[in-house]
Amino acid sequence: MTTTGSGEPVVAVRDLTIRYGDHTAVAGVSFEIEHGETFALLGPNGAGKSTTIEILEGYRRRSGGDARVLGVDPGTGGVDWKARLGIVLQSSAEAGSVPVREQLAHFASFYPRPRDVDATLEAVGLADAARTRVRALSGGQRRRLDVALGIVGRPEMLFLDEPTTGFDPAARLRAWDLVERTRALGTTILLTTHYLDEAAELSDRAAVIVGGRLVDIGRIDAIGSPADRIPVVRWQDADGRHEKRTDEPGRVVAALVAAGGEPAGLEVVRPSLEDVYLGLIGHRSLEEQPA
């Protein structure tokens, strides 16, 4: 059935495979997204993030495995299924001559229970640009219109494919705020992004895809192996700079102090998501090189 409120995941992907001729773009990816969750797909360019999201949006056919979105196979989903989705694609350049408000109102008319058009423009910060033609918008404004088009139908499931690429820092913060508010309404969100701080800020869980394979999945603060998260203690003395990876940084620092007083240049550094992520994709590309 198509119920999603009874603990069934909103998105269920099992062993998803996509091949183009000899090339395997996605090789056996599995994950689930629960109701109300924000889930990030991370990975370098060409890793298979967008291909995966386009399968779930119904734009591409899979070669193997199984996929369900809101209980429906995306390859066969009809207009009633699409009415429950919101899709923010990577940037496109259409409808240049149409004013912003008219474009949004037109798309709102496709949905059974759309959001108020002016309130949506207000929420994405385009209220002042309502009468501007789409082609006269800046890149960031255009992206905000893309987001507005994605949420105007009150989606239960929102796909955000690199929603803030090309934004200035202030615009990114506003976009994050908007995603947070959308999520607060109970919307389930699947996000792809290059920005790890964005994934850390917005998502509950993340999956890392490299070369079409899922190399890790879990809570943002648990991505990577425990070994990748071991803190590093750095200090200086007469012999130069020292660095020690340890599970017990407090004990190391205490021993340093006991031995020679206050150490110069003392730092205790926990690996950032970025360090963990770069470790993950680095390991992977080393493993994939032929012996």
Partner: peptide, 11 residues
């Protein structure tokens, strides 16, 4: 130009 792709993702 992406018009059809966007319409195809809408109901």
């Amino acid at each position: 130009d992406g018009t059809l792709k966007r319409l195809g993702g809408s109901p």
